[in-house]
Design a protein around this nucleic acid. Structure first.
Length: 538
DNA sequence: GAGTTTGAAACT
DNA sequence: CAGTTTCAAACTC
């Protein structure tokens, strides 16, 4: 029986390393590339492939242009039309259009040269001088192509923008060259679409607010309505799809998705506050039925290394390939200053791993630090600091506490602690602080943070949080029952259910069904016991 | 709140 | 890689 095989597989894995049980095999990967059309009415066309980094404006970013009568002072406005299935309406010139179709990577985008009217300040001009300012949005476009493209569109302040942007790009490229390629393969950063005008699989929208939150909606189905209005106030205008990413409130509203509110959502980290990336081949995890959103989170700094650590697929989830619609956004709780403990750094400028904010990939906000450079005003310094840390230790931003074997509720410390005086029973100890027991990877002296320790037992049972003790893993991985994990229990239940269904399908009597289920349970137990024997050499 | 202790990070 | 220094958090009074 296949489920028995699965159970066997799981129990075998549980003996040592079960982290791969929830593999990606059931979930698709995001891949493919999308291109943009930047249209003007000049008629000239230049083909180019957009791969690399593109910038957006600060403050407003990609906001809605609510018709011709709604100027937006601080945002670059974009109208986006699909290249197919849609006839561009009669609108003012110089509209940035795009289509979000998944296009084979070899397919070029089309760039149509601009007209002089692009340079005016008419709010209907889709590209203004702020196009190249702050906040990186990554897409398949090289920096040179960006400059050339943007230069032809909005030469205003180009030199200044070029210099500023080039410095950032240099730092960025230097910092993570290997990820540039990843980005090029997984364009998921797109402008605001007019969703309901796009054909099936045509809508892609993705952007970030000033806090690095990435939001995207992919593959909207025809008729799906995305709106920026509160429920009940759906804007029926073609420009209804919008957001002002400088506003968290608007951001939330913008992604109130009409009848699709059940759509899954996943969170994406950003390496830096204004930068987000999507890696290809990220694994997706399904949402619990009925849940509106699911959030996973990981260190933003660590995200740049994400693709190097497939053993942590659960830290990031994306919508499975083929799913018609998805919402991708950064978990805002990651940026919730209320939930983040403020640091008190005085000498490190919050650019060393001494600083918890920096180490966690956060920027300092509402902290008590002095001479802080861990903020958006010191991006370059921050880039360099991240690079230094990664050069010194490529896993510097890797979460210290990783998922342990299944059944280990809290996991284990990657490096282990080195405590000498605290007995690992004070918060000086990172294991203790993370509410996990010390493991064989620790090099601590006089450790009392292990299962069965008298001090620990007394302390934990005195504590209101006795689940810490109850859920903790066995001492130093030597408990033979440690392989009976939730996963194994789940698999066992699955086998029993499958047997019950089979009995029902075959029309067996209740007694016969009970017998079948009990026999199945016996086989499951046999597999578990055999696995225990194997893993413990009993 | 000031001073001390502690262990991770950084440095040599 | 080991020893030392620096640093910020945890802890004590």
């Amino acid at each position: 029986m296949s489920c028995l095989k699965e159970l066997n597989s799981k129990t075998q894995k549980n003996g040592r390393d079960i982290s791969a049980v929830y593999s990606s095999e059931n979930y698709g990967h995001l891949h493919g590339m999308r291109t943009w059309d930047v249209n003007t009415d000049s008629g000239d066309q230049t083909h180019f492939s957009m791969s690399g980094v593109m910038q957006r404006c600060s403050g407003g970013e990609y906001s809605r242009e609510a018709g011709a009568s709604r100027p937006d002072h601080h945002c670059t406005n974009h109208r986006i039309y699909p290249s197919h299935n849609y006839t561009q309406p009669s609108l003012p010139q110089n509209i940035l259009t795009a289509h979000g179709d998944f296009i084979p990577q070899s397919s070029p985008g089309h760039f149509m040269s601009p007209t002089p009217s692009l340079h005016n300040n008419n709010h209907l001009s889709s590209l203004g001088g702020h196009w190249l300012s702050e906040g990186l949005v990554h897409c398949n476009m090289t920096s040179g192509e960006i400059f050339d493209a943007v230069a032809s569109i909005c030469p205003d302040n180009l030199d200044e923008h070029r210099q500023k942007t080039h410095r950032k790009l240099e730092a960025l490229t230097e910092l993570m060259p290997q990820h540039q390629m990843d980005i090029n393969q997984s364009v998921n950063v797109y402008l605001q679409p007019l969703a309901h005008k796009l054909g099936e699989n045509a809508t892609v929208m993705c952007s970030m607010n000033g806090q690095g939150q990435m939001v995207s909606v992919n593959h909207c189905s025809p008729g799906q309505m995305l709106h920026s209005q509160p429920p009940g106030h759906l804007d029926s205008s073609p420009e209804a799809l919008c957001y002002d990413s400088s506003s968290k409130e608007n951001l939330e509203q913008s992604y109130s998705i009409g009848s699709q509110s059940h759509l899954p959502s996943v969170s994406l980290p950003a390496i830096w506050p204004n930068h987000s990336f999507l890696c290809p081949n990220q694994q997706a995890s399904p949402d619990p039925p009925g849940s509106g959103y699911s959030y996973n989170q990981m260190s933003r700094a660590y995200f740049s290394q994400y693709c190097q650590y497939p053993e942590y697929p659960d830290t990031l989830s994306l919508v499975p390939e083929g799913q018609s619609t998805s919402v991708v956004r950064l978990n805002e709780s990651m940026w919730d200053s209320k939930s983040k403990k403020p640091c008190n750094c005085t000498k490190s400028q919050c650019l060393k791993l001494y600083c918890d904010c920096f180490a966690n990939g956060d920027v300092c906000r509402n902290c008590n630090c002095i001479n802080c450079c861990n903020n958006t005003e010191h991006e370059l310094e921050r880039y360099k600091a991240v690079k230094i840390c990664l050069d010194r230790n490529p896993e510097a931003f890797r979460p210290k506490i990783c998922n342990g074997k299944l059944g280990e509720i809290k996991g284990r410390h990657n490096k282990g602690c080195n405590c000498k005086r605290s007995g690992c029973l004070k918060n000086y100890c990172e294991c203790y602080e993370a509410k996990i027991m010390c493991s064989s990877t620790c090099k601590c002296v006089g450790c009392r943070n292990y299962n069965g320790s008298p001090e620990r037992r007394a302390m934990l049972w005195e504590s209101p949080d006795t689940t810490f003790y109850k859920n903790a893993k066995c001492d130093k991985d030597k408990c033979p029952l440690s392989c009976i994990t939730l996963d194994v229990v789940e698999a066992t239940c699955g086998c029993l259910l499958a047997q019950a269904e089979e009995a029902e399908k075959e029309g067996y009597t209740l007694r016969q069904a009970e017998k079948m289920i009990l026999e199945e349970f016996g086989q499951c137990l046999t597999q578990i016991v055999l696995s225990i024997f194997k893993s413990t050499s009993l």
